[in-house]
Each structure stands twice: as C-alpha cells, then as structure tokens.
Design a protein around this nucleic acid. Structure first.
Length: 614
RNA sequence: GGGCCCGUAGCUCAGCCAGGAUAGAGCGUCGGCCUGCGGAGCCGGAGGUCGCGGGUUCGAAUCCCGCCGGGCCCGCCA
C-alpha cells in the first residue's frame, strides 16, 4: 500500500539518516504534518535544529541539508520556505498511484500494528437496576469504538460487560419488590420501570425508614451468600440486563461475555484472590482503632468490612486478576443471547455449559469515568505488586452532565447551576432510549420535508440517530466533561454524524447513476479539490494508528469530519456525471468510488451506519 | 488539608503529548449560491488580551513555576 503514512515513514528515515551522517543524534527534529496546507503535505524543522550546532541561518542550512536527504522524487517535491522549514509536496503521480491502489485492492486493505495482541476490553458495566442514561452511553460508545479500532488493526479482541448483581443498588430495588409491593410486571420497558419508579421510590423510603435499612442489609448479605433472596432477584436482574443490552445494541454495540459479580464470589474466585494477597503480604488485618477487624489493602483501602462482607474493590480486583490469568478461569459458559450482528453473547455459569471459552488476555482495558480513576490505579498498583506482567489499562473519561435547560425539563422546575450531574438515585438523568426516540422523531420530520418518498423512513431515522449520538459522544476529547443538551442533540446539521452519512449517500447516488467499472487510471491533471480529497483519503492508516497510539477516538471522529468536508467541497466544485471529457469523468467517478470505500471503512470503525439514501 | 481534570471566538470544541511559519472548525449571526450528480451542502463577512502573572527559549496556546475560576476524588459506597 502507498499512503501518506508510508511516505512519511520513508522521509522520516531519510531525514534521520542525513542527520546521523552529520553526527547529529537529537530526537527533537520534527517530520510531519505542517500547520497550514499552504506549506505542503510533510514538513521538517531540521534546519532550525541544525542552526544551533552550525551557527548559520536556518534558510542557508536548509539549502545544504535538502541535498543530503534522499527522497522519492516520483512522489515528492521539495521546497525551502524563507523561514527555514523544508516543505514537501506530493506529486500528481503519488495521488494517482494511491488512487490506483485503492481501486486494485477494493479498499484500503489490511492495516496492522507490528505486534498482534490478545486484548479484552470491559465496558458498559451498568448497575442492573435501571436503564442506561446518556452518561452510560458515553461509556458504551467509547468502549465499542475502541473495540472496533483494535479489531480493525488486526488484534484479537473480546468485549466484556460486568454485572454488579450483589451491590447496594440491586438491594434497593429488591426492597421495592419485596417490601413495598411494587409489581413485577409493567407496561413500560422493564429497565425504565425499575429505574424510574421502583428504585427511586425504594431509595427514598429506605432513607426515611430504619426498618427498611435493616432489610436492605439482610438482602445484601443474602446476595453475597447466594441464598433465597438471590434466587428471587436473579430473574429480575436478568430481565433488566436483557433490556439494557437492547439499548446498547441500538447504538451499535456488541459483547462477547457477560460476567456476574455473584459468580466471582459464589465460584470461590474472591477466596483465591484473598489467599494470594495474604501470601504476598499485601493485606493486613487491623486489630485496633478506627478500622478494627477490617482487612486493608496496601495500607490504603479496606477490602473486608468488620462484619466480614467484601467491598466493591475486592471484587473488582478479583475480576482484574481473572482477566489477566492470575486466577484461572473455571467458569462454564452458555449463550445468553443472539445479537443484532448475528454473533452470540455468552454468560458465565457455575455448573452448566462449555468450558475454556475464555483465555487470559495480554492487555485488559477498562472504561471508567474519571471519578473511579484512583481506585483503578490502586488495582493497577496491586497487580504490579503481584508481579503480573500483562498490562492492565485504564481509559478514563470526563462525566456527562445535563445542561441547565435540559435539567429543568426533567425536574420540571428552576435549576440554579449552569449544569447538573446525573443521579439515578434522585431521578435526574436522561435515558438513552428516550434520546434515541427524540432524535428519530426529529430525523423523520426532516425526511418528510426533504425526501418524503424515501422508503424505510423508520429504519433510516434510527440509523441517523445512531450516527448523531455516537459522533457527539466520540468527538470531544476523552478528558473533557460533556454538558448534554437535548436541543443541541436534535440538531442534525454541521459537525455531526449525519453530515458524514450524507456524503456517503451522495457518493452512492452518483455511482448508482453512473453504473461504471474502473480499470487502471492513466496520467491526468488533478484539480486542487481532487488532490485535497485524495490527500485526506491517503491519511486513513496514519490516523487509525495515531488514534491507537494516543488512545484517542476523538482524533478519528475529527478526521472523519475533515475527510467528509473535503468530499463535499469536491462535490460542490466539480461535476462528475455531467463531465463531457470521458477521461476526466472516469477519474472523478473513481475518486467517488474510492471515497465511498474509505469513508465506509472509517464509519464502520466509528460505528456510524452507512445510508445509500437519506 | 492532599490529589486528579478542565479554562482557546457569544456558545460547543480542535490544536498542547513531540515549541516554529497568518491560532482552526461547528452552532449562532450577517450576506451570497438550487428549472439540482439531492442545499442534512458549499462560499464569504463580522467575531480571539489562547484564564492571569512570571520563567525557559532566537521563538510559547503548546514546556516549567505560581496564582485565579470551574468540576471531581480522598467512605467499613459502587
């Protein structure tokens, strides 16, 4: 494959060669994208670095230095900017070679990292007592997109979803069903009903009633021990999980294995973990003072309470150890459900099903919001102390809050702050399913205005909604807090997911009408719009690998928009089907064809559905 | 008190890791472009003390230090 990335690598090597011949071994020389398109496609500041050693103006040095760089003159032309930068520009030959490669391979082909790894990624992991809200959606969409990226780069990837079925939030819900008389049937989607009605009200009742608090503690203990209440709760939790999965599938996610917290306790995994920690002296029993009768990890965090029950960190540490093979997998597995992509999601069981489905990963990724970072770092630290060489990688992202305007709609009253954090317990959240529905309605209205004869309006509107939601959650930098505003979310113009879908539809329509096959293209003069589009297309592997090395999917979302923009400019400025010159018409058609291949590849990595028409 | 993250146009955000050449998008706003390869688009205008102050450097939005503002964590919750 010939691409921006291959040429950049070759040139970087040449520049470094030339530098080492001069006896310079510095690493501070930049070879890469310039700040402005006017400065070419690849630039280097080598002359500035050399200026320090040779005490001559950068421009003079650049003139000599350029002669020492061996570069492919077929693909690159060089010029020296008066400032001293050496700028390289791709030749028409490069663009045509690239385009011909795409046509030959019918796409970009394989893009592989040097070392293929076995990776697992855990995401979603929402408490099974409520529906997914837009904050959870950020976790799902980021996790699913990292999964897609890893897979596109050739890794062996499995997706895990952890279900905390022995926690306080589940206990609250069970209090509602067992002691407050809530029905187990509802006309609403079951996860919505549990979260919006049963959990919120049960939580309120428990806070005001000591008797119920006691009941909750009993339930919590029974869940850990796997008693009668656990068996009562199990089908309820499972029903909620099935609804949560539907919401996640609806925005394009998929999973391989569901892990249940209760299985790690009932299956004896925590016991093994505890033995290992004791053996290595990482936990201490406290005899005196505030933490009397507790077990404490690394002098920092209580793992076992004085009443003998374990805290969440203990369970999560066990889970991490299982992921990386420190504790052996002895689960049985069976199919939990068929998924929309036709794969199966498996669940662990303690007694029934096939064995050996899971083998330990080289790298285990986990997606968490920033609040959980200190705890996950403690787990990392513990694994290191246990000499686990395999990598535990934490991807943390900023919280999703509700805008003042959106929060006011939910609480049906005045809100003082500019934004408010979501809270399942107090009923302040915006559910993902509701967001999907709201965008679908907006999309259908738009279709009725613009393209009333479109078949499958419902399906198209769903796909527009998926693209809109995923893109809006992927585009901001990981660390940034997102303030969700429903009115903004309903806008489908500008820098959005549908903008990218729209270019795919435009390309599809042209190709459908043209109905032409392509062979190898001959030499032809390219316009600036055509070169710009080809340049961005040629950067596909460069951006995928950059996103991977910097663990940033927002880089990819921004790149997708840049690429789509180049297509729209080309589309506005150059006619394709009406072009009288057949050579030029064929070139442009080939360009549209290649664009469609690359943008659909990228859209697949980002999980944005393609639409031939909208 | 200790720690983490953020601060760039009216609003939402890129750019910062690897310092360099006129700081870029989107929304909003003002003005253009459809008897059409579909306008969910394109072109142009207005709009910026890159939170503030020092330091390093020939050169700082970018690196270092200090401060200010916003958010979060520091529990026998998860």
């Amino acid at each position: 494959m010939i691409s921006y990335f291959t040429e950049l690598n070759k040139l970087t090597a040449s520049v470094n060669d030339a530098l080492s011949k001069l006896g310079i071994t510095t690493t501070s020389v930049y070879v890469g994208e310039p700040t402005e398109p006017a400065f070419g496609e690849i630039t280097t500041n080598a002359a500035f670095v050399l200026a320090k050693t040779f005490k001559k103006p950068p421009y003079e040095i650049a003139k000599d230095f350029l002669n020492k760089i061996e570069y492919d003159k077929e693909n690159l032309s060089a010029e020296i900017h008066p400032s001293g930068f050496i700028n390289f520009r791709f030749t028409e030959r490069f663009y045509l070679s690239f385009l011909n490669e795409i046509l030959k391979n019918d796409g970009f082909g394989e893009i592989q990292v040097k070392e293929k790894k076995k990776i697992i990624i855990e995401h979603t992991s929402v408490n099974p007592n409520k529906a997914l809200h837009v904050g959870h959606a950020r976790n799902v969409v980021l996790g699913d997109t990292f999964y897609r990226l890893f897979k596109r780069l050739g890794h062996d990837v499995k997706v895990l979803n952890y279900i905390d079925d022995t926690g306080v939030q589940v206990a609250d819900l069970i209090v509602g069903f067992k002691y407050l008389g809530y029905s187990l049937e509802s006309d609403d989607k079951f996860d919505h009903y549990c979260g919006d009605v049963v959990y919120v009200n049960a939580n309120k009742a428990i806070e005001e009633n000591e008797e119920l608090k006691k009941k909750r503690s009993e339930i919590l203990k029974d869940l850990e021990e796997g008693g009668e209440i656990y068996n009562f709760a199990k089908p309820i939790i499972e029903k909620i999980v099935r609804e949560q999965l539907k919401s996640a599938w609806n925005i394009g996610a998929r999973y391989d294995i569901l892990n249940w917290e209760s299985h790690f306790i009932h299956g004896g995994y925590w016991k093994k973990m505890f033995e290992i920690l004791k053996e290595k002296g990482l936990v201490k029993f406290i005899k005196e003072g505030k933490y009397k009768n507790c077990w404490v990890l690394l002098d920092k965090k209580i793992l076992i309470r004085s009443d003998g029950t374990t805290v969440y960190t203990a369970k999560d540490l066990t889970y991490a150890a299982w992921k990386l093979g420190l504790i052996h997998d002895e689960f049985y597995y069976h199919v939990f459900s068929k998924q929309p992509d036709n794969t199966d999601v498996y669940t662990t069981t303690l007694s029934d099903g096939i064995k050996g489905l899971y083998t330990p990963a080289d790298e285990a990724y986990i997606l968490i919001d920033q609040r959980q970072l200190p705890l996950q770092n403690l787990i990392k630290e513990t694994l290191r102390a246990l000499s686990v060489s395999k990598e535990y990688k934490v991807i943390a992202y900023g919280l999703v809050a509700l805008s003042k305007n959106t929060a006011e709609k939910i609480v049906k009253g005045k809100v003082e702050k500019e934004f408010v954090h979501m809270s399942g317990r107090s009923g302040i959240y915006y559910n993902l399913d509701d967001l999907m529905d709201a965008i679908k309605i907006a999309a259908i209205n738009l279709i009725n205005n613009r393209n009333p004869l479109l078949p499958d309006k419902e399906d198209t509107a769903s796909k527009v909604a998926i693209a809109a939601i995923r893109y809006s959650l992927l585009r901001p930098d990981l660390e940034k807090q997102i303030v969700f505003d429903i009115d903004d979310a309903l806008k489908l113009e500008g820098d959005t997911g549908p903008y990218i879908q729209y270019t795919y539809a435009r390309a599809s329509k042209i190709l459908e009408k043209a109905n032409q096959e392509f062979s190898k293209l001959e030499e032809i003069n390219l316009s600036q719009e055509e070169k710009n589009l080809l340049l961005y297309m040629s950067k596909y592997d460069y951006y995928l690998l950059k996103a991977y090395s910097s663990m940033s999917v927002s880089i990819l979302a921004n790149y997708a928009h840049e690429l789509a923009f180049r297509f729209n400019v080309f589309y506005e400025k150059k006619r394709v089907l009406d072009e009288k010159d057949t050579k030029l018409r064929t070139l442009r058609l080939a360009l549209v064809y290649a664009y469609k291949l690359i943008i659909s590849d990228l859209m697949n990595v980002l999980g944005l559905p393609t639409l031939k028409e909208l």
